[in-house]
Amino acid sequence: MPEPPRFIATLDSNSRRTPVRIAFLTRRTSPQVKVADDDVVMTWPNGMFRALVAIELLVIALIWLSVLWDAPLEALADPMQTPNPAKAPWYFLGLQELLHYFPPIVAGVLIPGLVVMALVVVPYFNINVEAEGVWTKNRQMRLRVFVVTLFAMIALLLAFKVYAVLAPTLLIGAAMLAAARPHPNRRFAIWLASKPLSYWIVTWFLITASVLTIIGTFFRGPGWAWVWPWEL
């Protein structure tokens, strides 16, 4: 006959009683403290003043920017006259640059849709949450999948002549292969090897988006043809 439990845990909604928190330890685990908590300081004034100083610096910078540079104002809107090139706001120029390579359904719908979706689901993927280095487990298998994927992407980008995306892809691909070397010993190699898959994907996305936006902003002239910034 099993020994009766020494206490009974219940859920109670009586607001007059102070709740007691209890930790249940199941078998094969032991309590451990992963991170020792940092020192804490008072939000006021320590945190607040730091924030305020940062804000003041920002405001000063923006004031001088506004005093010295006027916001652009062109001629009155005229639907009959399309400026060449007609450019979207700068943060959409990466997309507009993609439109140059891919059909609108891909560049204008599929890619931004996927990006937003990916951003939303980022925290819900175990692989992200565990933050393991991408090559830690199943190295051979993953390497095979990775090489196939990489070549597929390179082929696709070459087919559409998207060199602006191809360059960051090759860069990241090379970095990931470097990270896949077994038994890293140097610090940098260890650091590379510790990076999870999501790190690589986001870094690739960051570089690609920056390159596309910069090209769209500074290197595109009439007819979306390539120009140098000093020719604009």
Partner: peptide, 21 residues
């Protein structure tokens, strides 16, 4: 010297900048 002083100093700089407008 501390963040409160920096806040005050920068506040004055900020107001002076605004006076340029």
């Amino acid at each position: 010297g501390d963040s409160a002083r920096a806040f005050g100093t920068l506040g004055i700089v900020m107001l002076l900048s605004m006076a340029v407008v």
